[in-house]
């Protein structure tokens, strides 16, 4: 229990987000382009980190579905910046040994000849440590 709190506090510190600023309007989730691919949605990330319900988020594939488009950051009326919370949760996972979501060996199967380098480095930065 204590550990869960620590993880949340660390996520809050690292993201620089104050989840208490959220007024629960759902605009972040209303705007999210990856919503349908997510089990937990941006507003739920904020709420679950605030309330300490962190384990489902750490286990969820939703953390790899955020496109880092920052639309939720700009459209949030309260300046909560949900994308930063999503990123901080993801870092809590992939920083653990052996938790890389994307491995170099997986890569050849994903490539095609037009794919820009930018896609590969971006995915590695978001998915692996």
């Amino acid at each position: 229990m204590e550990n869960k709190k620590d993880v949340c506090n660390e996520i809050i510190r690292r993201s620089g987000v104050n989840p208490r600023k959220c007024m629960k309007c759902g605009k972040c989730s209303g705007t999210c382009p990856a919503y349908d691919e997510m089990e937990y949605h941006p507003h739920q990330f904020v709420y679950m980190v605030e309330t300490g319900d962190i384990e489902p988020l750490l286990k969820s594939k939703s953390i790899y579905r955020c496109l880092s488009c920052f639309a939720c950051i700009d459209r949030c009326p309260r300046g909560v910046e949900p994308a930063k919370i999503v990123e901080a949760v993801r870092l809590s996972v992939i920083r653990e040994q052996g938790n890389n979501h994307l491995k170099a060996d997986d890569l050849p199967a994903m490539l095609d000849e037009d794919l820009p380098q930018q896609a590969i480095v971006s995915a590695f930065r978001k998915y692996s440590k």
Binding site: Y64, R65, C69, A71
Partner: peptide, 19 residues
């Protein structure tokens, strides 16, 4: 000013395609 899907194209061709 909506996202094209970005790097998700690597993992989820469908999502990138939809966007």
């Amino acid at each position: 000013n909506e996202c094209c899907g970005g790097y998700i194209t690597l993992e989820s061709k469908e999502l990138a395609k939809a966007k």
